[in-house]
């Protein structure tokens, strides 16, 4: 029982990082109906900028977080302009492959700047884990959980309580109708890309400072996990992205404990495959690009 509770707690912490990644992914998907393969690599590039700054100057964590977020946002904007803005009408395959090409670019940039396979990243919190009775909880996980909740709340405010949010939701509903009512779809896409990449950058910073290391694999990992969580939660729905992320985290923590890492991943893909084949009602399989 105590194992089960501990796994659930670990799963929640892991799930909140997936939920953050999925939120960014889903925002982009909702507005553009395109999968951005360079989403994770942009986050990785931001984290590499922070690592580079840390190695050169040794500045504090808060600055590193800002650099990670700023770096990811800039990379995201670059991806939007080069891969998605030109392919807004049709050509979904071209947009996806172009974003893959930029992924390759980002990965090479990162390894050029910092050629070793693995770099240490300053820890978010130096002390040991908190104990709650017989359960333990890492402070990093707690920060991740709180950050996920805060980002969700802020995002909700932006999307449902601001002019910009109204425009974003209008574009999600129908880009043509939004354009006709005077919304610049191009500008909204760019802003949403920047916002999503900033959320991703924050998630990336929390993940690498929690793990106390950074590798180029972070790029592919973030894209895959964000995409998986988004698919599990239905497609293009923000509450769904959070639910999908948490569900993915819980399932991973439990199956890792009972079955080991290889079967853990196998089950993740099997679940996704079966869900896609069976198409439960919350997965609207008609609406993908």
């Amino acid at each position: 029982m105590i194992d089960f509770l501990q796994n659930t707690l670990d799963g929640l912490a892991l799930g909140s990082s997936y939920a953050l990644l999925a939120l960014g992914f889903t925002l982009i998907f909702g507005v553009l109906r395109r999968a951005n393969l360079a989403y994770g690599p942009a986050i990785m590039l931001g984290c590499y900028c922070a690592t580079w700054a840390y190695l050169k100057t040794g500045i504090g964590l808060l600055f590193l977080a800002l650099i990670a977020v700023a770096g990811s946002t800039l990379a995201g904007v670059y991806v939007e302009r080069l891969c998605f803005a030109p392919h807004r009408k049709g050509a979904a395959a071209a947009a996806m492959v172009a974003s893959f090409a930029l992924w390759m670019q980002f990965e090479e940039l990162a390894t050029l700047a910092l050629p070793r396979h693995l770099y240490a990243f300053p820890a978010l919190y130096a002390g040991g884990p908190l104990s709650l009775g017989r359960l333990t909880l890492r402070v990093e996980s707690l920060v991740m959980l709180v950050a996920a909740i805060l980002v969700c709340a802020a995002l909700w405010r932006i999307l449902y309580r601001s002019r910009f949010g109204t425009a974003v939701r209008a574009v999600i509903d129908s880009p043509a109708a939004a354009e006709l009512s005077g919304i610049s779809v191009s500008a909204v896409s760019l802003q949403v890309f920047a916002l999503a990449s900033a959320i991703g950058g924050l998630a990336g910073f929390l993940i690498v400072s929690g793990n106390e290391q950074v590798t180029p694999m972070l790029g592919m990992w973030s894209t895959l996990k964000g995409m998986l969580a988004m698919m599990l939660g239905g497609l293009g729905s923000l509450p769904g992205a959070i639910a999908g992320g948490v569900a993915l985290g819980l399932r991973e923590a439990h199956s890792q404990w009972y079955l080991g890492p290889q079967l853990r991943d196998f089950i993740a893909y099997l679940l996704l495959f079966v869900l896609l084949a069976v198409r439960p009602p919350w997965m609207n399989t008609r609406s993908a690009y």
Binding site: L82, C83, P86, H87, A91, A94, A95, V97, A98, A101, L102, W103, M104, Q105, E108
Partner: peptide, 10 residues
């Protein structure tokens, strides 16, 4: 190469 591919696809 990555940049060339992205520009080509535009």
């Amino acid at each position: 190469f990555g940049g060339l591919v992205a520009v080509l696809l535009v």
